[in-house]
Write a protein that binds this DNA or RNA. Structure first.
Length: 262
DNA sequence: AGTACCACCTGACGGC
DNA sequence: TGCCGTCAGGTGGTAC
């Protein structure tokens, strides 16, 4: 689930539920979720601190503390946040719980343990260490075009490569290519200027629409592929049966009529 | 530099 | 009802 729009919704959620409250305790269910730090040290770093700001880069959410440190949250395929007021409200698979003075708790839940929680000195050093590219919503057109033109891989894996552009995953890359009428197996360097421009504007529009609708596909306007990704579904624009193909180890969905290879 | 594959995990779903 | 194979929207490592 969590690609850029989902993580942006989580960021807004964290922003409205978890700032300025002193952290009284940190409970850890699975140490496996941590990346580069022990649960004990993580808890020690946060004791008595507050989150004072949030930011996001691609699929990574940063919760800045009032000391010189930042909590990094990555959600894998199944992660999410929930503010609760009682222990029994905690979601199943709560891996880390940030308990605030006053009684509320921010739960980080991640069923499949594919997410990661980390602690970094600052956002910039984490971004550098992970070699994260520019955020998909912040990248300038000229830079985007350069990335696509220089890529020697397929357009789908180019869009999904977090070191080139941060934030796009399997479903949103599919959606962007669908909106732009680009076939998923098209080599990136084959695209002409008009197609690159179309991909760029589709990327921005798709991400903004998704965020506006809280990343909930059921609320999306018609004409989006996202709610029609299942076997036997039809293209919301031309009615063709949506196809599935394997590309770069992922399963891409596309409309064979609206997305022709050039 | 690419890509193809495996691995890490759990849960849902369809077929039998 | 239960067992089994398959699949799921992410990432990282390794071997070509």
């Amino acid at each position: 689930m969590p690609e850029l729009p989902d993580v942006e919704v989580f960021r807004e959620y964290l922003e409205t539920t978890a700032l300025y409250k002193p952290i009284a305790r940190v409970e850890v269910d699975s140490s496996r979720i941590f990346n580069g730090i022990s649960p004990q040290l993580f808890a020690d770093k946060l004791a008595g601190r507050k989150f004072i700001a949030s930011s996001r880069r691609g699929k990574h959410l940063f919760a800045h503390t009032d000391s010189n440190g930042v909590v990094v949250l990555h959600f894998g395929m199944t992660g999410f946040l929930k503010l609760v007021h009682n222990r029994d409200e905690r979601p199943k698979h709560t891996r880390v719980a940030f308990g605030f003075t006053g009684g509320s708790t921010l739960a980080y839940s991640c069923t499949r343990l594919l997410g990661k929680v980390a602690y970094a000195d600052d956002e910039a050093s984490y971004v550098e260490q992970k070699e994260l590219g520019p955020d998909a919503l912040a990248i300038e057109y000229d830079h985007f075009r350069e990335i696509v033109e220089k890529s020697r891989s397929g357009i789908k894996s180019t869009l999904m490569d977090q070191t080139r552009i941060a934030g796009l995953g399997n479903i949103y890359s599919d959606e962007i290519m669908y909106q732009a009428g680009v076939h998923p197996s098209e080599p990136a360097r084959n695209l002409d200027h008009a197609q690159v421009k179309k991909l760029f504007s589709s990327m921005n529009r798709v991400l903004e629409v998704a965020i506006r609708h809280k990343a909930n596909p059921d609320e999306f306007p018609s004409g989006y592929l996202l709610p029609h990704r299942n076997a036997g579904d039809h293209c919301p624009r031309c009615g063709s049966v949506v196809r599935k193909m394997s590309s770069g180890g992922r399963s891409a969905r596309y409309c064979p009529k609206c997305q022709k290879k050039s």
